[in-house]
Write a protein that binds this DNA or RNA. Structure first.
Lengths: 401, 401
DNA sequence: GGACCTAAATATAAGATCCAAATAAATTCT
DNA sequence: AGAATTTATTTGGATCTTATATTTAGGTCC
């Protein structure tokens, strides 16, 4: 497949090495005996494979007895662990108005994090890439390592992304967001849709084979996991939410089709202060100053216009949930992104609208607990999954000699 | 995983055997040299593996030189082929009003076919199973083999089916359709949703990684293939079409939610002859005698009411296409089932309704060419795919001694 | 401190598999 | 009949795994 085609005689060794490495990636420190139980191989084989992995720089033998074990009886076991210096992974959330990056070791422990606001439209593609490059450099410096240590970088962008990491050619905005990061960032680079990464993060938090994660700040995008697998679609368009308004207005998409809940709250509030009949506290703010936060805040204080908007958002969400549940048998819908903390009332209203007599069980509607970091967390999780799946494809920094 | 856990030393042999067998399942008759090219193994190894497969009853050496090859020069190659008597697969379309079964060899060549009308509600679960048992027995007799020859039986039922072959407990109709075939039918038995099987059949006809196949006779069900994989959902509910009317009537599903295009044409026609203002040839038929065929026929002759119905069906289809395209990035929508031959005008109208300014390309709408046999064909194809994926899991009838 | 116990590491032998190269066989062409 | 050609078979070597026996490193008990 990739790299040198191993001779068939060495294939077995490689299979066993991968299995052992997969095990090592989940354990802190392990003995040969534990590895024997996990892989089903003999002690001699396990030790041989470990030897090879130490030589390749993946593992290191740990000698100091910092152990509180239950009084081991016989000869003490040799213990191995993943070599700290084997490498790190980088996650990057390359949003429209900000960049967030996170560097972790191979077990997902954070080593460095950076965030920066950007103006993508002023920067252009090249500018976005350069900014990302710089930010990652800083985060790597925080983590005390360099470009060569990065095994894999996963980038989340707000655009459909196909299996090759490309976005549809028609979309100018999409092309701007998916700025061609691959050549400039360290290690192997994988570009993925941001909502898809959010879905991976949510699934890692609470495993479930059929979840939809709605990344719902400015734009609306869904990461769909069905039968435990992320859906992509030919051009990466799976999870786009354009269909919503297609229904409202008879196949003609109107404005708002891809707006997220946050953007909608803002838009409806700015429009509502003109058209709404009753009194509303939102009029105290200048029209251009109204943000989604203000609407949620006003609703909590009982403002009627804000309450209406909450209800409309809830109805919208309920529709989405029904479609996802009906068409894909989704069992859990997670609202993620920056506004997930304030979304409670919307969820409540949406739940009340769900039909009760439908044949199949209703999906549960929940808010994400990961806040604004879903995408970066998902990027890291995605990177780690990838490395776990085929560890040998990502060579660690060569050991000495 | 299944069966005897092979010792690790034998794993390599097994891998190579499976690879060779997969190759053999696609070829008519092959030489060791061809197998070498396909698997990348040495001649000695290939012959050794072939030896083992002959011993296991999978392959047989073909000696008679019924070959029109281009005058081979050197020593003639030994040629192998899949043993005809290795086994057969059975497909069963267990619909509500009929049973269809097809027996084929391991390359999908038909050996026997039977069809029978049934009254499922009168028969009950046990009666359905018994009828299926009998019909399959007849088809096997036509094919000249018995129960022991069946490696795998795939059953399609009009109900959601989860990964274990079970349907949701709530649905009485579903439980009746998914009648518990497994213990009574020959070979390993797999139960699957009928629309999913139709999707597999369509994809086998014209490969495409993202297709939706609407099985649209009496009931509406979709088989969804995204990223080359069939979607199932936790309870097998992926592809249910209840969401349609949820939109029309504000989250309250009304009648017709799961009716197929055929059923809708009939219902609308029977209702329409009362409410419609103009003249229509459909009134010449008794209300209870109007069938979907009559509506399509009348439309071809220019009847206005029938034309209206066609348009409404087209609009419905267009909605479905837009949702599938938008939410799942589906590139092709196939209408399959008994009415697929008459569906042309509906497709035309639906195409005209598709929006043209949407960001992503529109799905193509096509009619299936497999007619009423889609489900059975898909069942066979599904069985063959399964056997190709893990051939060794299905032992062939033991060879002599 | 020394005898004993235990579980792990090492060493050794054996089995299975594959590859590479040499040898033998079967067929066509001259 | 003999050369050429292609394939089958045999043989030796290398790799990797397993199974068994032996050694080793610690602890415990007296």
């Amino acid at each position: 497949m990739d790299g040198t085609t191993a001779s068939s005689t060495q294939l077995l060794r490689q299979i066993n090495s991968e299995a052992l490495l997969r095990f090592a990636l989940q354990e802190q420190v392990f003995t040969a005996g534990e590895a024997m139980a996990a892989t089903g191989l003999t002690r001699a084989t396990v030790l041989g494979v470990c030897d090879g992995l130490v030589g390749a720089g993946w593992l290191e033998e740990v000698s100091d007895g910092g152990d509180a074990g239950p009084a081991p009886k016989g000869r003490p076991a040799r213990r191995y662990q993943l070599r700290e210096a084997a490498g790190v992974v980088v996650g990057l959330d390359a949003g429209e108005g900000y960049l967030t990056t996170l560097v972790t070791d191979l077990r997902g422990r954070g080593l460095g994090k950076r965030r920066k606001s950007i103006d993508s439209h002023a920067l252009g593609r090249a500018g976005r890439v350069a900014s990302a490059r710089e930010l990652i450099g800083q985060a790597l410096a925080d983590a005390g390592c360099g470009d060569d240590d990065v095994l894999l970088t996963v980038v989340g962008v707000p655009a459909p992304v196909d299996a090759e990491g490309m976005s549809p050619e028609g979309g100018e905005f999409w092309q701007l967001m998916n700025s061609g990061f691959a050549p400039a960032l360290p290690g192997t680079v994988i570009v993925e849709n941001d909502a898809n990464l959010a879905a991976i993060a949510e699934q890692a938090q609470e495993p479930s084979a059929n979840v939809a994660t709605l990344l719902s700040g400015e734009r609306f995008g869904a990461g769909l996991i069905v039968d435990g697998r992320l859906l992509r679609g030919r051009q990466g368009g799976a999870g786009e939410m354009r269909f919503l308004d297609v229904f409202d207005s008879k196949l003609v998409p109107d404005e708002g089709g891809s707006d997220g809940l946050g953007a909608l709250a803002r838009k409806w509030a700015r429009k509502g202060i003109h058209s709404y009949g009753g009194t509303t506290s939102l009029r105290r703010l200048p029209e251009e100053g109204i943000q989604a936060e203000d609407v949620f805040q006003a609703a909590r204080e009982g403002d009627p216009l804000a309450g209406d908007i909450i209800d409309r958002l809830g109805a919208r969400l309920a529709r989405i949930a029904v479609v996802l549940s009906s068409l894909l048998d989704i069992e859990r819908v997670v609202i993620a992104g920056g506004i997930s903390s304030a979304i409670g009332p919307v969820l409540e209203h949406a739940r009340s609208l769900l039909p009760t007599d439908s044949g199949l069980p209703l999906p549960s509607l929940v808010a994400s607990t990961l806040g604004a970091e879903v995408v970066v967390q998902g990027a890291i999780e995605s990177a780690l999954m990838r490395i776990r799946r085929e560890p040998m494809a990502f060579l660690p920094r060569a050991a000495r000699s």
